[in-house]
């Protein structure tokens, strides 16, 4: 406690310079310096992320799936920047998608300078009992533009988005590896406003790990979930069936980053046409790489 306290100074005397420079016009670095300092005694960060809970899952469930069940292979980890804000953009699949946790784990395991990854999720989770407690603790934040901006711009963190959103996870097995619409390009706008890098990510294997064969509308209404899927294990094994995956071979490929500063940075973020073009381009690159990865794959289970 004393370590934190000793840095505090009594109320700074008000000097005229500080009064004249209104906060909005202050340079970004200065506002960054005013971010709350980390309190080393805390086990949660301000987003609600818990070292303990995340570490527990990392050592047990995620470790098992990453290493032994999905036997994950990673390509292009050097494309994940070692510092500064970066927005990872990935394809998304699986009823309870395993891809996010596996991507986060791959950065922890393979990257020379491992960094925490913040995963954006739907607002739905914050409102659903149970999920609401757990989801922030394992590093998920709601996909609000203000949240993404703060993480990328102010805190200079790694953020993972799935622009397909639930359109990606609810799609049926017959539509596997066909990317859905990439929203309205909000993720590109967010990265440009924060002048951070965009890293496209391709995940192969998640589609087969938990294929969805059908949706049951009536049960969706009853449980108030975003969808109620029928998978090989759900609902047959109860709620735990959501955590049961088939042992598909996982391959993750990080593509070359796109520098948003070169695209025009924060000023160009208002340019809707440019944003859409970039979003389309990223989507095309991910699709292209997915097609190639799927074509080269000899077996769903052995790679």
């Amino acid at each position: 406690m004393s370590a934190v306290a000793s840095e505090r100074t009594p109320l700074a005397p008000t000097d005229t310079e500080e009064q004249e420079l209104l906060p909005e016009r202050r340079p970004a670095d200065e506002m960054r310096d005013l971010l709350p300092a980390l309190e080393p005694e805390r086990r949660l960060d301000d987003w609600g992320r818990s070292e303990r809970v995340e570490g527990f899952f990392d050592r047990t469930l995620v470790e098992f799936y990453y290493r032994y069940w999905f036997r994950t292979e990673v390509e292009g980890i050097e494309n994940v920047p070692a510092e500064g804000g970066a927005l990872l953009v990935s394809n998304h699949s699986g009823a309870l998608p395993p891809d996010a946790a596996i991507i986060a784990k791959s950065i922890r395991e393979e990257h020379p300078e491992p960094r925490p990854l913040y995963i954006t999720v739907e607002h739905f989770f914050k409102g659903y009992p149970g999920f609401s407690m757990l989801i922030p603790k394992i590093g998920c934040v709601a996909a609000h533009p203000a949240n993404v901006h703060r993480l990328l711009y102010d805190e200079r963190q790694l953020v993972l988005v799935f622009p397909e959103g639930r359109k990606g996870t609810e799609k049926l097995y017959k539509d596997r590896y066909r990317l859905r619409r990439f929203g309205r390009g909000g993720f590109v706008e967010a990265a440009m406003r924060a002048e951070s890098k965009l890293v496209p990510v391709c995940v192969v294997g998640a589609e087969e790990a938990q294929p969805i064969f059908a949706h049951i509308g009536a049960l969706q209404k009853l449980t108030r979930l975003i969808y109620f899927p029928v998978t090989p294990t759900f609902p047959w094994l109860g709620p735990l069936g959501m955590l049961a995956y088939l042992p598909a071979k996982f391959k993750i490929r990080f593509l070359e980053p796109i520098d948003t500063v070169e695209l025009g940075g924060a000023e160009a973020a208002q340019d809707k046409a440019l944003v859409q073009t970039v979003a389309q381009e990223i989507r095309a690159r991910i699709q292209e790489n997915l097609d190639e990865m799927v074509a080269r794959r000899r077996s769903v289970w052995f790679g």
């Binding site: 406690m1 505090r8 109320l11 000097d15 009064q19 906060p23 506002m31 709350p36 301000d46 703060r150």
Partner: peptide, 28 residues
């Protein structure tokens, strides 16, 4: 009590104001 709330406190700090306690210290 369900959704909670966090606010950004940097603007007032930029005027030169400094807090004597963090949220954690306040609770302690």
């Amino acid at each position: 009590l369900r959704f909670g709330r966090g606010v950004d406190n940097r603007l007032y700090k930029a005027t030169g104001f400094r807090y004597g306690h963090t949220s954690r210290e306040t609770v302690i």
